[in-house]
Amino acid sequence: MANIYQFLPDIDGAEFAYVSMLINPLTDEQAQQFAVMYRARRKDPQMILILTLLGFFSIAGIQRFVTGQIGFGLLYLLTGGLCFIGTIIDLVNYRKIAADHNMQQAFEVATIMRTMGVVTAPPTPSTPPTPAQAQE
Protein backbone atom coordinates (compact mmCIF):
# COMPACT_ATOMS: atom_id res chain seq x y z
CA MET A 1 0.00 0.00 0.00
CA ALA A 2 1.62 3.20 -1.16
CA ASN A 3 0.77 6.44 0.60
CA ILE A 4 0.02 9.37 -1.70
CA TYR A 5 1.40 11.91 0.81
CA GLN A 6 4.78 10.26 0.45
CA PHE A 7 4.98 10.61 -3.33
CA LEU A 8 2.68 13.46 -4.39
CA PRO A 9 2.17 15.62 -1.31
CA ASP A 10 1.09 18.76 -3.15
CA ILE A 11 -2.12 17.64 -4.86
CA ASP A 12 -5.63 18.13 -3.46
CA GLY A 13 -9.34 17.97 -4.19
CA ALA A 14 -10.83 15.63 -6.77
CA GLU A 15 -7.37 15.03 -8.23
CA PHE A 16 -6.18 13.81 -4.82
CA ALA A 17 -9.12 11.42 -4.49
CA TYR A 18 -8.59 10.00 -7.94
CA VAL A 19 -4.80 9.68 -7.87
CA SER A 20 -4.80 8.14 -4.40
CA MET A 21 -7.20 5.49 -5.69
CA LEU A 22 -4.77 4.72 -8.49
CA ILE A 23 -1.74 4.76 -6.22
CA ASN A 24 -3.13 2.84 -3.25
CA PRO A 25 -2.74 -0.70 -4.60
CA LEU A 26 0.82 -0.07 -5.79
CA THR A 27 4.03 -0.99 -4.00
CA ASP A 28 6.32 1.86 -2.97
CA GLU A 29 8.60 1.28 -5.94
CA GLN A 30 5.71 1.26 -8.40
CA ALA A 31 4.23 4.35 -6.78
CA GLN A 32 7.59 6.08 -7.15
CA GLN A 33 7.59 5.32 -10.87
CA PHE A 34 3.98 6.46 -11.16
CA ALA A 35 4.84 9.73 -9.40
CA VAL A 36 7.80 10.40 -11.70
CA MET A 37 5.73 9.81 -14.85
CA TYR A 38 2.76 11.73 -13.48
CA ARG A 39 4.87 14.73 -12.46
CA ALA A 40 6.24 14.98 -15.98
CA ARG A 41 2.71 15.34 -17.37
CA ARG A 42 0.94 17.17 -14.57
CA LYS A 43 0.12 20.90 -14.84
CA ASP A 44 0.26 23.03 -11.73
CA PRO A 45 -2.99 24.96 -11.09
CA GLN A 46 -0.97 28.08 -10.32
CA MET A 47 0.63 27.92 -13.75
CA ILE A 48 -2.84 27.67 -15.32
CA LEU A 49 -3.86 30.74 -13.30
CA ILE A 50 -0.86 32.74 -14.49
CA LEU A 51 -1.38 31.71 -18.12
CA THR A 52 -5.04 32.70 -17.82
CA LEU A 53 -4.11 36.12 -16.43
CA LEU A 54 -1.84 36.57 -19.45
CA GLY A 55 -5.07 36.70 -21.46
CA PHE A 56 -5.79 40.19 -20.11
CA PHE A 57 -2.45 41.62 -21.18
CA SER A 58 -1.29 39.74 -24.24
CA ILE A 59 -2.31 36.40 -25.74
CA ALA A 60 -5.50 34.69 -24.54
CA GLY A 61 -6.10 30.97 -24.45
CA ILE A 62 -2.63 29.61 -23.64
CA GLN A 63 -4.15 27.78 -20.66
CA ARG A 64 -6.36 25.88 -23.11
CA PHE A 65 -3.47 24.96 -25.40
CA VAL A 66 -1.38 23.79 -22.46
CA THR A 67 -4.13 21.48 -21.22
CA GLY A 68 -4.56 19.96 -24.67
CA GLN A 69 -7.73 21.79 -25.75
CA ILE A 70 -6.43 22.99 -29.11
CA GLY A 71 -9.84 23.97 -30.52
CA PHE A 72 -10.72 26.15 -27.56
CA GLY A 73 -7.20 27.54 -27.52
CA LEU A 74 -7.57 28.74 -31.10
CA LEU A 75 -11.04 30.14 -30.41
CA TYR A 76 -9.72 32.13 -27.43
CA LEU A 77 -6.67 33.25 -29.38
CA LEU A 78 -8.70 34.55 -32.32
CA THR A 79 -11.43 36.25 -30.27
CA GLY A 80 -9.35 37.80 -27.50
CA GLY A 81 -10.55 35.20 -24.99
CA LEU A 82 -14.19 35.59 -26.13
CA CYS A 83 -13.93 39.35 -25.45
CA PHE A 84 -12.33 38.61 -22.00
CA ILE A 85 -15.46 36.74 -20.91
CA GLY A 86 -13.89 33.33 -21.53
CA THR A 87 -10.75 34.47 -19.75
CA ILE A 88 -12.81 35.51 -16.71
CA ILE A 89 -14.63 32.16 -16.73
CA ASP A 90 -11.27 30.39 -16.78
CA LEU A 91 -10.02 32.61 -14.00
CA VAL A 92 -12.88 31.43 -11.80
CA ASN A 93 -12.44 27.87 -13.00
CA TYR A 94 -8.66 27.47 -13.21
CA ARG A 95 -8.42 24.75 -10.56
CA LYS A 96 -11.00 22.68 -12.35
CA ILE A 97 -9.21 23.06 -15.69
CA ALA A 98 -5.96 21.85 -14.12
CA ALA A 99 -7.63 19.00 -12.22
CA ASP A 100 -9.51 17.90 -15.32
CA HIS A 101 -6.30 17.70 -17.32
CA ASN A 102 -4.35 16.09 -14.50
CA MET A 103 -6.86 13.31 -13.83
CA GLN A 104 -6.84 12.45 -17.52
CA GLN A 105 -3.04 12.30 -17.40
CA ALA A 106 -3.11 10.14 -14.25
CA PHE A 107 -5.41 7.72 -16.02
CA GLU A 108 -3.08 7.59 -19.03
CA VAL A 109 -0.01 7.04 -16.85
CA ALA A 110 -1.78 4.20 -15.03
CA THR A 111 -2.74 2.66 -18.36
CA ILE A 112 0.82 3.00 -19.72
CA MET A 113 2.23 1.38 -16.58
CA ARG A 114 -0.15 -1.49 -16.97
CA THR A 115 0.68 -2.07 -20.65
CA MET A 116 4.38 -1.93 -19.79
CA GLY A 117 3.70 -4.64 -17.25
CA VAL A 118 4.94 -2.48 -14.40
CA VAL A 119 1.84 -2.92 -12.30
CA THR A 120 1.82 -6.61 -11.53
CA ALA A 121 -0.05 -8.28 -8.71
CA PRO A 122 -0.95 -5.63 -6.15
CA PRO A 123 -0.38 -6.67 -2.53
CA THR A 124 -4.04 -6.47 -1.58
CA PRO A 125 -7.10 -5.77 -3.70
CA SER A 126 -8.34 -2.36 -2.68
CA THR A 127 -11.94 -2.04 -1.62
CA PRO A 128 -14.20 0.23 -3.69
CA PRO A 129 -14.14 3.81 -2.43
CA THR A 130 -16.96 5.05 -0.27
CA PRO A 131 -19.00 8.00 -1.56
CA ALA A 132 -17.39 10.29 0.99
CA GLN A 133 -13.91 9.31 -0.15
CA ALA A 134 -14.77 9.84 -3.79
CA GLN A 135 -16.26 13.26 -3.14
CA GLU A 136 -13.53 14.68 -0.95
Binding site: A17, M21, P25, M113, V119, P125, P128, P131, A134, Q135
Partner: peptide
Protein backbone atom coordinates in the same frame (compact mmCIF):
# COMPACT_ATOMS: atom_id res chain seq x y z
CA UNK B 1 -16.34 8.61 -15.20
CA UNK B 2 -13.83 10.32 -12.93
CA UNK B 3 -13.93 10.71 -9.16
CA UNK B 4 -17.00 12.50 -7.90
CA UNK B 5 -19.22 11.27 -10.69
CA UNK B 6 -21.52 8.39 -9.82
CA UNK B 7 -19.75 8.25 -6.45
CA UNK B 8 -16.68 6.75 -8.01
CA UNK B 9 -18.36 3.51 -9.01
CA UNK B 10 -17.17 3.75 -12.60
CA UNK B 11 -13.66 4.90 -11.93
CA UNK B 12 -11.46 3.80 -14.80
CA UNK B 13 -9.02 2.02 -12.53
CA UNK B 14 -6.84 -0.16 -14.75
CA UNK B 15 -7.79 -3.82 -14.47
CA UNK B 16 -5.44 -5.92 -12.39
CA UNK B 17 -3.64 -9.04 -13.50
Amino acid sequence: TFAGGSHGQHLPIPARH
